[in-house]
């Protein structure tokens, strides 16, 4: 494990802890896309099926279990504990996720390392993760404002993806490891986040500073 990989994983962990902490402090899930969070549950479950077939390391196993359990817990919080059903804002979360699911399934059937259920589901999880943030980003675009929670959360997720890129360079040169599917889908995902931050910067930060006297 190299430093970039560890920093990437820690950023990912931090994003989830920020989300959980803020939900439980504010007792509210306003601004969080239920659809994106459900997609993450699907991503983690389909990717980490190898928990049953292969042991990589204690670190790896614990992280996988944490990601699965925390994602299910977040969906539970949004859906039941701090339900958004009575709120108008939920109508903003109307991204057609069927297209993301169908597209990811199609891509995983075409691009995989082996035509076996586990490998197809693994590839499916990569494609789906690369676009899973879209409902959340659309929701932000519609409301036209991002509160600190969603901004910090998305920033940490973006950081996680950004750290994975030097990690792949490092692994390619140091270990001869190159996972073309993970790299390609990872780059798509990083581009989505950078696009978001570009728009966010243009609309929010610059607008805010130009308003100042």
């Amino acid at each position: 494990m190299n430093i970039f990989r560890i920093l990437g994983d820690l950023s990912h962990l931090t994003s989830i802890i920020i989300l959980l902490h803020t939900i439980n402090t504010n007792k509210s899930t306003t601004g969080i896309s239920l659809k994106t969070q459900i997609l993450y549950v699907i991503v983690f479950i389909t990717r980490y099926l190898d928990l049953f077939t292969k042991f990589i390391s204690v670190y790896n196993t614990l992280m996988k279990i944490f990601f699965i359990i925390s994602s299910v817990y977040i969906v539970y919080l949004i859906q039941y504990k701090y339900s958004q059903k009575h709120m108008v804002k939920q109508d903003l979360d109307n991204f057609k996720v069927e297209y993301l699911l169908a597209g990811s399934l199609l891509a995983s059937l075409i691009f995989n390392y082996k035509f076996t259920p586990l490998e197809i589901l693994w590839s499916f999880s990569l494609w789906l993760e690369s676009v899973a943030i879209l409902p959340q980003l659309m929701m932000l675009t519609r409301t036209g404002e991002a509160d600190m929670l969603t901004t910090n959360y998305i920033f940490c997720l973006g950081l996680y993806r950004a750290f994975y890129i030097p990690n792949w360079f490092y692994r390619y040169f140091a270990e001869g490891h190159f996972d073309k599917l993970a790299v390609f889908t990872g780059l798509i995902q990083t581009l989505l986040y950078s696009d978001f931050f570009y728009i966010y910067y243009k609309n929010v930060i610059q607008a805010r500073s130009s308003k100042l006297p």
């Binding site: 292969k54 082996k114 490998e119 190159f178 996972d179 993970a182």
Partner: peptide, 10 residues
């Protein structure tokens, strides 16, 4: 060596 199928990343 080919470790592409290791899937050892999260």
């Amino acid at each position: 060596k080919n470790t592409a199928n290791a899937h050892d990343e999260l």
